[in-house]
Write a protein that binds this DNA or RNA. Structure first.
Lengths: 325, 325
DNA sequence: CTGTTAGCGCGTTCAG
DNA sequence: CTGAACGCGCTAACAG
């Protein structure tokens, strides 16, 4: 119609007619629908971002960087948490390819053949993030794991440590292998013979970091420093050392990959009134889905979740949880 | 075609024909396209989630809760950061309504009339998160701000504090007003007369928390405790107190709203090799957009960002940054 | 059991 | 300068 011309400002339209259309648009609050042209011109202006877990601050900042950059060119970003599961990842990839996303940003899950094959075969523009995949013809953007591990170990050596344990992720994940390589290179440069008993391979998780650190602490002579291959492992290791009565860094030093961009302070350290944001998201989404289905309770709801006070150091006095309705 | 019947398993199809179709599907790696039926049946199976900033751990866990719940019913979630800007928010709302999202989850930006009007007038199912809007006929899911503030202040009073400053967000945001109400109620219950000079209104930001705490610390007699209205304010206040030579909690106690679900440890405290995840996201997205446009460098890229070692307490030795290429 | 028709709503292209 | 026709790809409804 002529309406399209007016809205898109293309082609000349009689001034009077244009005014009539514009007022009608304003009156009816017409918004339009981008699906038809997406269908016709094969362009949805949507990107998919599949990460392990948005709850990890590393992926959070990644997501923010993606979103900001996408917005500059009017793209929207669909975020998916794969939890490192190939099954979940593949399910997402299929669903989003069907939704005709214009491009895919993927932090590949540990075992990741099928999803990538699909993306390649469907010719969906794809960039891999954080991890490369051997022999995969896709762009990758990642950090320098080898150099990072090397520099951390070199630092520990410079501080006088000679027995340094490495707490790695699964070796089939390239970053884990690269971090091991950096660790070994730093040792070699310092003329320290590597000790196989000090290299541990597990998962990129707190639980695994906890276990690996416990094993490392029971080796004799005990290592004086730990290299943690990611932030979760570092946190788990720290907990294990504390549980074992080791002080950090006096008894055992820790150096880790991955930073958490939170601000230079001690957290959790504040006494807070906590409302579960996760629960809030769940409750709201459940309600929204009911509404979409045309159901849900009569009239607008105002659902108020309780705040629970968690007493920590910042308020002084004894520490502990004090739940409240 | 009959193909559709086979794929969707609807209606009976001759076994032989079905086999032929199935093998062709497998052969060609046919994936299908959900746009046409979205167009026809007005159902995109997409939800929009607009939050202030995914970088804030509070919204991160919210996003995770939303995403998990949406996935259970095969919905995808488009995440948007509004940065509390009504302009940005409205732009997103328009774009996503055009994209025909099935529902909208909105943490309304401070000044938020137009977007909400649009959602209501277009009859897009919408649930408000975290903040209510006066006289708005939409569902809301939020935390109990009044009770949380009350409980925190009651705790501080029980610990012996009588001069408690309140560091609030902008009063036109309902949560700020509610937190003030809770603060006043707790004082009243303890028979403490409120002191206007101890109530500060600013923004929900670290910078504002810093400023407000600085002002609070210069009041005489100095308050012995602070109530911070969100996690950013708490962090800013903590920094200001430290800069002013006050110890927390010995000189001034702090209690805050909003928790950060990170695990019971001290962060940042680890010496790390940091790669900017944000930068990684940006670089990857820029590259992907070039690819989508059919450009970008020849052949698959392998872009490696440097790791920078940040020396903190966990490694022992002197603390400071040691950048490396 | 299988093939045909029509329609979702936009933008482009071509006639009037 | 404006209106009409067509096509994107899928599926519901109906005809064969």
């Amino acid at each position: 119609m002529t309406v399209s011309r007016v809205i898109n400002g293309k082609g000349n339209v009689n001034a009077e007619l244009r005014r009539r259309v514009e007022s009608a648009v304003a009156e009816l609050g017409y918004v339009g629908n981008s699906l038809p042209s997406s269908l016709r011109f094969r362009e949805t202006r949507m990107l998919a971002l599949a990460i392990s877990d948005i709850t990890n601050p590393f992926f959070t900042s990644m997501a923010r960087g993606v979103e900001d950059t996408a917005l500059e060119q009017n793209y929207s970003v669909i975020v998916c948490n794969t939890d490192e599961s190939e099954t979940k990842q593949e399910r997402y990839v299929r669903a989003l390819v069907r939704r005709q996303v214009d491009g895919f940003l993927l932090v590949p899950a540990s075992d990741t053949s099928e999803s990538v094959r699909l993306l390649v075969s469907q010719r969906v523009p794809t960039v891999l993030l954080d991890r490369r995949i051997d022999g995969c013809p896709l762009d990758v953007v990642r950090g320098n794991s080898e150099q990072g591990a090397h520099d951390l170990v070199a630092l520990l050596i410079a501080l006088g440590h000679r027995r340094i344990a490495a707490l790695l992720g699964p070796l089939r994940v390239p970053t884990a292998a690269e971090r091991l390589a950096g660790y070994l290179r730093a040792l070699a440069e310092a003329g320290i013979a590597p000790d196989e008993g000090l290299v541990f391979c597990g998962q990129y998780s707190q639980a695994s970091g906890y276990e690996m650190a416990r094993s490392a602490a029971s080796v004799w002579p005990r290592p004086t420093a730990l290299l943690a291959s990611n932030n979760s492992i570092a946190i788990g290791a720290y907990k294990a050392l504390r549980a074992a009565g080791c002080r950090v860094p006096e008894d055992v030093a820790i150096a880790s990959h991955d930073d958490m961009e939170i601000g230079p302070t001690i957290i959790p350290f504040f006494t807070v009134a906590a409302v579960s944001a996760n629960e809030m998201g769940r409750v709201a989404t459940r309600l929204l889905l009911e509404r979409i289905a045309g159901g849900g309770p009569e009239g607008p709801q105002d659902i108020v979740l309780p705040a629970e006070v968690i007493v920590r150091e910042s308020s002084g006095g004894p520490v502990g949880e004090a739940a409240r309705g």
